[in-house]
Design a binder for these strands. Structure first.
Lengths: 248, 248
DNA sequence: CCGGATTTGTTTTGTCATACATTATGACAA
DNA sequence: TTGTCATAATGTATGACAAAACAAATCCGG
């Protein structure tokens, strides 16, 4: 329990948060179970109670646990965790593999991003559009793979922000984690030109205020990205997306 | 600054969290600005530094602020807040009006819920389906309006949970807040029978494992719900949804 | 003698106060 | 410009006490 992460963090309470949070997400403490009393955790980790309590407050804020005098601090049902929180996400990634994460992320993107693009087409300000365009230009100018991925991610994030609906924003945050974990997701080689064209198509639709076009171009873009992913990672992703113009 | 909320909470640091968090979401502290030093907040609210620090940790955990020695505690860009966090949501609701909240929530639901239903059709376990069915039955058996809304919400939440993709779950959480704030959103009078039929249709599609049917029935259900909302609240909602079978 | 309400006790979190450590920032000096 | 140092803020530790919740023991009426 409370295995030490190899990541060195600035202050002590962040480290404790990391260890306890990791243990919970990893399932070592189980839903509904109570963690050890604060004083015991202090001894286990050789830190003061101040630090332990602040870590507990952080985790409480993320919805992982809840405390009551006498009865102790219990792990809440996973359905109530802030699953999109960067830390929770990171702890998940330390457990489950990248493929599974990417599959789930793609399920979410397939659900949300077309609608987000449509919304952006209606709601985006000049600055929002400039930001999306900057992403495109960045992909264009990218020389190494890493620059390309960074610009790509910035492009997609900008679309979520351009919806002017803050409930879409946490999804954009998730790309940061993806970024840090893997640079191998970029469209490689011959696929890059096509990706660029498709990104421009989305940009143009949003800039023109054409919601339907924005949605459809995004559907195409995501479908091709999924194909690339399958090719790279060698695994089928259960998106259950309405494929753009097929049987149905 | 730090206006006292009329909500009485159990422990002191929750109250401080409420006041400071509210001030930030309300925009009284502005992005990038630093809040007063901890000791000053202590004096302002007449509490110990322990309490203030734990409140700050909570808010840090929700992505609202970040602290550094000497330079102080600054408000982070709203794009990095955990906008789906129940507390953040509540603070938003104390500021912006319910109509605006409902409109944005509906934009999100329109984007996500059809895909979530489709995913659920593929992924749901027997327990998941039983849970969805329980929502339906609850709506059926409901006598007063309040019971109907509770069951309705449980139904939709169950669909998100049935996706077996935890990234969809925080959206289901949002319904709790809606619930607490307003019971006037239910389908009223003559609309209730139709709502029931449409909910059953979604349930049947999911139970049958038919992803396409689940998606389409959900689109219809949401479109009609939106119509009801417009009728009740008297306001047009910008969903930019692909209307089911119309011009386009 | 029994059953239910009440009291008391104990454990754990919640709050306070104080002292000191650490770290960034900005001013001053080389 | 660069380096050093003072300073002001957050970070950490410790010890004490308050409050709450659960459980056991106790009291009292039947």
């Amino acid at each position: 329990m409370f295995q030490t992460s190899n990541v060195l963090r600035r202050n002590v309470h962040s480290q404790v948060t990391d260890r306890v949070g990791g243990s919970i997400v990893r399932g070592e403490i189980g839903i509904g179970e109570t963690l050890p009393p604060e004083m015991q955790i202090c001894e286990m980790m050789d830190v003061s109670r101040t630090v332990v309590r602040e870590a507990i407050r952080t985790l409480t804020g993320k919805g992982l646990i809840e405390s009551r005098p006498k009865s102790g601090t219990r792990v809440r049902p996973a359905e109530q965790w802030n699953q999109l929180d960067p830390d929770v996400l990171r702890w998940h990634l330390e457990t489950s593999d990248m493929d599974q994460y990417l599959a789930k992320l793609f399920q979410l993107r397939t659900a949300v991003e077309p609608a987000a693009a449509a919304l952006a087409a209606v709601q985006a300000s000049e600055e929002d559009i400039a930001r999306i365009r900057a992403g495109c230009d960045g992909m264009d100018a990218a020389e190494i793979n890493e620059e390309f991925v960074v610009a790509d991610i910035a492009f997609h994030q900008a679309i979520y922000f351009a919806t002017r609906n803050e409930f879409f924003w946490p999804i954009a945050q998730m790309f940061e984690i993806t970024l840090r974990q893997s640079f191998a997701i970029a469209a490689t080689g011959s696929h890059r030109p096509r990706a660029l064209i498709e990104h421009r198509a989305v940009l143009d639709a949003i800039a023109a205020g054409d919601a339907d076009a924005a949605r459809e171009t995004t559907v195409v873009l995501l479908a091709h990205s999924a194909d690339d992913l399958v090719r790279i990672r060698g695994r089928e992703f259960e998106t259950t997306a309405p494929r753009p113009a097929r049987k149905r």
